[in-house]
Design a protein around this nucleic acid. Sequence first.
DNA 1: CACGCATTATACCGACCGGTATATAGATTG
DNA 2: CAATCTATATACCGGTCGGTATAATGCGTG
Lengths: 190, 190
Amino acid sequence: MDNRQTLLACAEDLFARRGYDAVGVQEIAETAGVTKPTLYYYFGSKKGLLEAILKERWAVLDARMADALAGTGDVACRLRQLAGACAGFFAEHRQFHLLLMSLLYSPRENEAAQTARPYLDGFYRSVVAVFENAHESLGNMRGRQEQFALTFIGVINQYLTFVLHRDIPPEQERSGLDEVVRQYLYGIFS
Amino acid sequence: MDNRQTLLACAEDLFARRGYDAVGVQEIAETAGVTKPTLYYYFGSKKGLLEAILKERWAVLDARMADALAGTGDVACRLRQLAGACAGFFAEHRQFHLLLMSLLYSPRENEAAQTARPYLDGFYRSVVAVFENAHESLGNMRGRQEQFALTFIGVINQYLTFVLHRDIPPEQERSGLDEVVRQYLYGIFS
DNA sequence: CACGCATTATACCGACCGGTATATAGATTG
DNA sequence: CAATCTATATACCGGTCGGTATAATGCGTG
């Protein structure tokens, strides 16, 4: 593996385990077995390193989400697919999930949080869009699309955080997720 | 206001706005209009300062939660009361809510997250207990109390983060919260 | 070989980090 | 008045922070 990829992997791991602010570039470089100038040669700054991690991972996640939403099912089906796609991706990249969660809930004025904001906002808008395009099955939502999207994301995130932290076998994880989504939708449809 | 309280207030604000790791003790002291040794006189360390914030706020939140759970209603009623109590408290202490959320989702090896862990675990156990004591109305939960508690917390947190960030009027906030809890319970009971 | 380019290391920068030794001021108490 | 205790500031500690100037390495190409 070349130094660039090693640096990305080490940084992702360290950021996910201790937090962006608590990890120094020195330590990242040492863990990757290179020196600081090498890190700065590839990424320009600590922030640039975080951006590179987000960009590379997001490209894959975005493609998976687009795939999951490509079908023509109803809202419930689409949300189940979306949740499944996210669960699959994050199960493969647990460290990235931890990192993303910590950035999602980081204070808004935090530098790392601001770096991640565009990506997280994009994700949020994707979920809102699913609810937006669902007025025929959900009826008039009276502008509650945002609330639905927010709480949906909240449920999924919390469940994934729970299930990825312990070592739940994949099939149990999936059935649990399906149940969580089903429960959530029952509430919405009522 | 005495210097101790000023320091607590300034630290809570700064931690909530930029994150524990991103704020230096120097800046906290300057914002409070005192010098570093004064900070260290009262709190011993940066971590001690965070602990003091958590301890003082938690005493109030804990009392409110105990109050809310003192009644003898069914699960739905108890959860609504619990959610209402939390919403009320966090509406009065928005900065603290932001801080707590950032700590809840901070990586586990982060020092600040470890400091907050006992408090957050206590909160989690309180919610689990509500579900534990509800087998007569929810039937056999087959060990899903934890999943219920987790996703319940996820929904509430996400909704409060949403509603406290914008400036939603209190009555609308409450009715929205009631609806979110109702939606959630519909899913559980089905 | 000689040139240029991509990559990496040595050694360093000023600023800030969390934390402290020491002294001083003011109130309290014997 | 002297002794003590609380609360505060000045000035400093070694270490680490993010970042960089400079040079050397290796390597493909003319």
